[in-house]
């Protein structure tokens, strides 16, 4: 898979004139001095980075370095943890998300989890449209169309079109994960966060999901946390390396894996630790 060259956005400034949400802006996500504390212990500290629209950004680093914590702060998931405190700014399309309702933010910033988690009481079809149904959209013809479109888009339609009414739990792990992706894109987010989406899957399912991620780039901004450095190299345009809660290096993926600036990054990507 050819890695697409992108401009180096780490040094480049965003077009600050574009402040109204919904309008095109080159920067999809920007964090400014983002810190998250659990029980007064820092999980991530002073993370400042910009994520460009329609790119795949990988976040790598050893376990416990704060990758997931960073990812989960982008869709305000820490709101659910009473002992978590978030400092700093998170801008999505140049707007501070803390000024918005978490529910509205999450409609724009979808998330795919490590373990496939379809709703166990629902059928495949119901899962595919669950986000819309739970938010009050009930017109059947519309839902049917959306379900088909997104299941096709997630590369699952051919496998499930004859058994849409069967329980989602009857699918294999890889199929479940693609169902979760279909469910996520049905809400029409701009950004998709993926927290190690393939770490519970077999190699074939993994390659299917990687293919999806690669194709999704034209429509979505994707931030993916991964433990698998080959995966980061295969699918991402940019890579951020986290270590002990700090952002160590952030640059184009190709440079990151061939000619990193930091010693620590080099040691990690060459497998000397982690």
């Amino acid at each position: 898979m050819e890695i697409q060259e992108t401009e180096d956005i780490v040094t480049e400034d965003t077009d600050e004139t574009d402040k109204i949400s919904g309008r095109e802006s080159k920067t999809a996500i920007q964090t400014k001095k983002l810190s998250v504390y659990f029980n007064d212990r820092p999980a991530i500290e002073d993370i400042s980075l910009k994520i460009k629209r329609n790119t795949v950004t990988a976040i790598i680093g050893p376990s416990g370095c704060g990758k997931s914590t960073f990812l989960r702060s982008l869709n305000l998931m820490h709101d659910m943890t009473p002992k978590a405190r978030v400092y700093g700014e998170i801008l999505i399309q140049n707007e501070d998300i803390t000024e918005f309702n978490a529910v509205d933010v999450r409609k724009k910033v979808g998330m795919v989890f490590q373990k496939p988690n379809p709703f166990p009481t629902m059928t495949i079809y119901e899962n595919a449209v669950s986000g819309l149904k739970l938010n009050g959209k009930t017109k059947k013809s519309e839902l049917d169309e959306i379900a088909e479109k997104n299941l096709k888009y997630a590369g699952l339609w051919e496998e499930v079109k004859d058994r849409l009414k069967t329980p989602a739990m009857s699918l294999s792990g890889g199929q479940q994960q693609r169902l979760c992706i279909a469910r996520t894109i049905a809400v029409r987010p701009d950004i998709i966060l993926m927290d190690e989406p393939t770490s519970a899957l077999d190699p074939i399912s993994t390659s299917k999901i990687e293919e999806l991620i690669y194709n999704f780039k034209n429509h979505y901004t994707i931030v993916i946390v991964t433990h698998n450095m080959q995966q980061a190299a295969r699918i991402s345009d940019l890579t951020a390396f986290f270590y002990l809660g700090k952002l160590i290096e952030y640059s184009k993926t190709r440079r990151m894996f061939t000619n990193p600036k930091e010693k620590l990054t080099e040691a990690y990507v060459t497998g000397k630790f982690g």
Binding site: M77, A102, R106, M111, F113, F119, P120, S130, G131, N135
Partner: peptide, 28 residues
């Protein structure tokens, strides 16, 4: 599992709807 609540919240579903339609239904 917590992941089920998060799955629903991540779809932009409010907390009370998540509790009622996902958590309570699954545990019914």
């Amino acid at each position: 599992p917590q992941s089920l609540r998060e799955a629903s919240l991540a779809l932009g579903v409010s907390r009370w709807k998540t509790t009622l339609r996902i958590v309570l239904t699954t545990a019914s």
